[in-house]
Each structure stands twice: as C-alpha cells, then as structure tokens.
Write a protein that binds this DNA or RNA. Structure first.
Length: 427
DNA sequence: TGACGTCAAGATCCG
DNA sequence: CGGATCTTGACGTCA
C-alpha cells in the first residue's frame, strides 16, 4: 500500500459513458434523419446528460473524465453547420464552470477513423476538421490546455518511416489551438510506444502510454510499464498538466484488445505497485466505466472508511446475491467491523461473485429481495403482472434481462431510490 | 470485399 | 400495440 501513497493527487477516471446513472445517455442521429431542429434538440439533450455526468463525478469524487465525441452529432461534418458554441453558450459555460470549480480534468478522443497521416488528402482534411471540432468543444468549456485531445498516429501504408514523417508534417500544419491540446498514444497494431516517443521527440506532443496496447504491440526495446511511463513522463510539460496514461485489462477469451468487463483489483494493484509512487493520472478503459473508477479510487485510498464500502455494498448487493449467496453472506460478515476498511477483500469477493454464472435459483432469490421494496405499494394489476412474469421466468419463457427491465420500471415509477441507485439493473 | 469496434437509432418481429 | 430483438450506420485501414 505504501508504494503509491504519495500519489494521493493522482486522478483515476473513465471514458464517455456512465453505468447505472439515470439521465446520462448520449444520443446520436443518423445522416438521413437530420434537421436543424433535430440537431438542436439532441445537442441540448446531450449537454444536459453531460452536466448530469459531471454532477455524478463531482458527487463521487471522480476527477478525470473523457467526453464522448458524439456530444455534438456530426460535430465535424458540414451536415451540421450550427454555431452550437454560440447557441448553447449558456449551457456550455455552466458545465465548464462545474468542471473547473471542481478540478475535474476532461479529455476527448477522436475515433480510429480520424487519420492524420493518411495518404488521401480528403481523409487528412476531414481529420483536421475533426480535431478542430474537438478543440472547439473543449474551448467552449473554457478549460485549459491540460484538458487533452488524444490521437493515434494512424496507418502504416507499408512504410512506417514515411508514415511517421507524414504524421509529423501534418502535425506541424495544425493550428495552435489544436496543438496545445494534442497528445499521441501507442496503438495495438501499428505504432508502438517507441514509435510514438520518436514522433513526440520531433513534434513535442506529449505521449499517452497505453499498457494493453503496449502488451499487444511491443517495441523491440524491452522495457516494463514503469520504464516506459518514465520515458513518456519527459514528454509532458508544465502546461500539459499531470502525465496521463491509459490502463486496461484484456477480457479473457475475447479478441486481443477487448477491454475487460471490470478492472480486476489484484492485477490493478500489482500494476500500481510496479509503478512505485509515480504521480500520474490514469484513464481506465473498461466496460463497467464509473464502477471501476470508483473501485480503483477506493482501493488505493489508504485512509478509507467503512462507510465508503457500505455505500458500495448498497449498490452491488443484489448483483452479488444474484450470482452467489455465499459471497453475499461473506461480504455482510466482512462489513460488520466498523473500524476496519477491508477494501481488498471486499472487491475481491464482489469480482469473484460477478464472474460466476447466474443460476436460476439465486436469480429468483435476488428478484424476490428486490420485489420486496414495492410489494406493498404497487397496484393489484402490477402484482399480477409480476407473478405472471415470475412464473414465465421459471419456465424459461421470459429472459432474466426482460424481467429485470420490468422491475427497473417499477423502481422508477415508485421512485425507490435505493434500487434506482443500485447496479442491479445495469451490470 | 469484409472485418475491425462501438452503441444507439431504426427496423422488424413477436405475442 | 408495446416490448423484445435484430440490423444498420459512420468512419479508414488492412488482410
């Protein structure tokens, strides 16, 4: 634990979406369904969601967050010629103020289709437009240049050296508003961390080290995570803010590069220990998003309180019960001693439970626990609906997901806060 | 030419 | 008719 105690200012965050928090979804539009009104409507909707996400992050002490590129639909396309930064100035500055006032650091990450070193001029032009859009969005929040835009180098086109040079040439043509935010990241098949450091050496762009990409696409120079992170640290200058890395784990039995469902804490702690007390920000790339961010923050907190775990337990308990009543009881037992903070054991038991296959009996057990919350308040009609669904579920003609969706609807209708905040309906 | 990755919109199916 | 489930889109590179 001692190893990373000094990194107490370190921020851990997650990307784009929030799991299990109402009113935080980001909407998209299809090209053939676009009108000015529709665009405005969706932008406003998304900004409301973003504000709710920021509020959630503030409340949960999450200081690092990647904003989805979909926040402004077709933000870099001529299809959308709205001056959204003017139209929604009030909303944007309001969100920006919350971000700044709470020392949250945000970032954006254009997708794999933005390729600055492409052989096609049109692709490069579109990429620059996309970078302009991302820079403008961050600018509209009035957040400083430590709030970064992350980009991969692009394609190799049979000649890596030329591809690097094309990247550098095109980088040099970018406006200062983009350059001041642009950081580059190693990818999982073309440009390894050594390549990216070389490019950084010439362009001056800071480098994001991605551990999983490095694992899958190693440089011929053999260094460990810590050593690469140290090399990358030199590329971060004062105005760039704290050095940032991406951390993810491979989902077992899935294609290389698939992010894991959750961050497994023993592995994460090994990684952290191997970094000694290096002071960096860590962006997690993981399916359960904010859940893993909270978990990792809690597990590194050497002065944590039992209340934190109790709060987490309230949100996880029915998901655990659904998988393993044995772990459910073990955790209850674990949380009895109010003077301790058994955070490692706690999350280990949760991870172990959630990895188990759901058996029908335990699923029903969890369902009945959840049903207990509105058993007394719901209408007779709903009671009958519930009974019918339960018997259908038992006969395998209703899926667990559908059943849970119905329960979620009831939870929202009767505003059962304990259940609405639970992860039971989202993992 | 299709896989790659992502996730919600949109389309279609089902009871 | 509402809800569940399947398909598509939007993008560029590479096998």
């Amino acid at each position: 634990m001692e190893a990373y105690e000094k990194g107490v200012n370190m921020s851990i965050g997650y990307a784009c979406l929030v799991v299990g928090v109402p009113n935080t979804s980001i909407k998209r539009l299809k090209k053939d369904n676009i009108s000015e009104d529709k665009l405005k409507e969706v932008i406003l909707f998304n900004l409301h969601s973003l504000e709710n996400i920021i509020d959630y992050n503030i409340k949960n002490n999450i200081k690092l967050f990647r904003i989805s590129s979909d926040i402004i639909p077709f933000g870099s396309s001529p299809i959308n010629n709205l001056k959204w930064w003017d139209i929604f100035e009030k909303e944007l500055s309001n969100i920006g103020k919350k971000i700044r006032d709470n020392s949250i650091r945000v970032s954006m990450h254009p997708g794999q289709y933005s390729v600055l070193n492409s052989l096609k001029k049109e692709v490069v032009d579109n990429t620059i437009k996309d970078l302009e859009y991302h820079a403008r969005f961050l600018e509209s929040l009035k957040v400083d240049e430590s709030n970064k835009i992350i980009l991969h180098v692009g394609g190799v086109y049979n000649d890596k050296q030329e591809a690097k040079e094309r990247f550098i040439n095109n980088y040099n043509k970018l406006s200062f508003d983009i350059k001041k935010r642009l950081v580059i990241e190693n990818d999982d098949r073309s440009f390894n961390i050594k390549d990216v450091l070389e490019i950084s050496n010439i362009t001056g762009a800071p480098v994001i080290y991605d551990n999983l990409h490095n694992f899958l696409n190693k440089s011929t120079d053999v260094f460990n995570d810590y050593e690469w992170i140290m090399k990358c640290s030199k590329t971060w200058k004062e105005n760039d803010g704290k050095q940032k890395i991406h951390y993810s784990q491979q989902e077992e039995n899935k294609k290389n590069g698939s992010h894991s469902k959750t961050i497994y804490t023993p592995k994460f702690l090994d990684f952290m220990t191997s970094l000694y007390n290096v002071d960096i920000d860590i962006m997690l790339e993981v399916k359960d998003k904010n859940l893993s961010a909270t978990k990792c923050i809690n597990i590194l907190n050497s002065s944590g309180k039992i209340e934190t775990l109790e709060k987490e337990w309230a949100r996880y308990k029915y998901s655990v019960l659904e998988k393993s009543s044995s772990n459910y009881h073990k955790i209850r037992q674990l949380l009895k001693d109010k003077d301790k903070y058994p955070v490692k054991k706690f999350y280990l038991l949760i991870e172990e439970a959630l990895d188990k296959k759901t058996r029908k009996g335990s699923a029903i057990n969890a369902i009945e626990h959840v049903y207990g919350y509105f058993k007394k308040v719901i209408l007779e009609k709903e009671k009958q609906q519930y009974m019918l669904k339960l018997s259908k579920f038992k006969k395998d003609i209703l899926s667990l997901d559908s059943f849970k969706k119905y329960l979620n609807k009831l939870a929202i209708k009767y505003n059962v806060k304990y259940l609405i905040e639970s992860y039971y309906f989202s993992i």
